[in-house]
């Protein structure tokens, strides 16, 4: 499985660590939008996944939902992104009792996934990809999983823990 993952990684065009994370503004509910830059100052985990209600995704979002307190302890926010529309996201979010927002990369379809290099043109959905964006908006971790494999959270947690603590940074800038 890991060799498959490596292969996937090598052929992927995903933005790599060190790149500036492209800003975006996407709808999360009919009357609410979320922009990446509104999280500036804290790390953000971007969880791109192919589609709401597909079995593997269900596991992946459920897992991240469950680990959320751990991410929050490290001051990180989690954002899910797929090409599904907001109504679908709302139903999925309710179904899974999600406590983090799902963003709709719906119009133009897959535009944000394309900017991050994780859009599957032939399938019309995004890759199953993870990015860790640091407090300054720079990508610090990037991973594309085989589309049917739930990537788990061990890699992103490790990456998150190796970032300088954002709370200390915030205190530094305020003094």
């Amino acid at each position: 499985m890991s060799s498959q993952a490596d292969q996937q990684k090598q052929t992927s065009n995903a933005l790599q660590p060190g790149a500036t994370a492209p800003n975006f503004t996407l709808r999360t509910t009919p009357d609410k939008s979320v922009s990446l830059d509104q999280f500036r100052g804290n790390p953000v985990i971007l969880l791109f996944y192919p589609a709401d209600f597909s079995p593997v995704c269900g596991d992946e979002v459920s897992l991240y939902n469950e680990i959320l307190p751990e991410f929050q302890r490290l001051n990180a926010e989690v954002i899910g992104i797929s090409v599904d529309g907001i109504w679908c996201h709302l139903a999925f979010s309710k179904h899974k009792n999600l406590r983090f927002p799902l963003l709709s990369d719906f119009e133009p379809k897959g535009n944000v996934a394309q900017q991050y290099g994780v859009y599957r043109k032939n399938d019309g959905v995004s890759e199953r990809a993870l990015f860790l964006v640091d407090k300054d908006g720079v990508i610090r971790y990037s991973y594309v999983s085989p589309i049917r494999v739930n990537p788990g959270a061990d890699g992103i947690l490790k990456a998150l823990e190796s970032l300088p603590q954002s709370t200390e940074q915030k205190e530094d800038t305020s003094t």
Binding site: D59, E60, L63, E66, I67, E70, V149, N150, P151, G152, A153, D154, L157
Partner: peptide, 12 residues
């Protein structure tokens, strides 16, 4: 238990 699983790559 749960966190040891997360860190060991439990994904479901």
């Amino acid at each position: 238990d749960f966190l040891s699983g997360v860190r060991s790559g439990v994904n479901g």
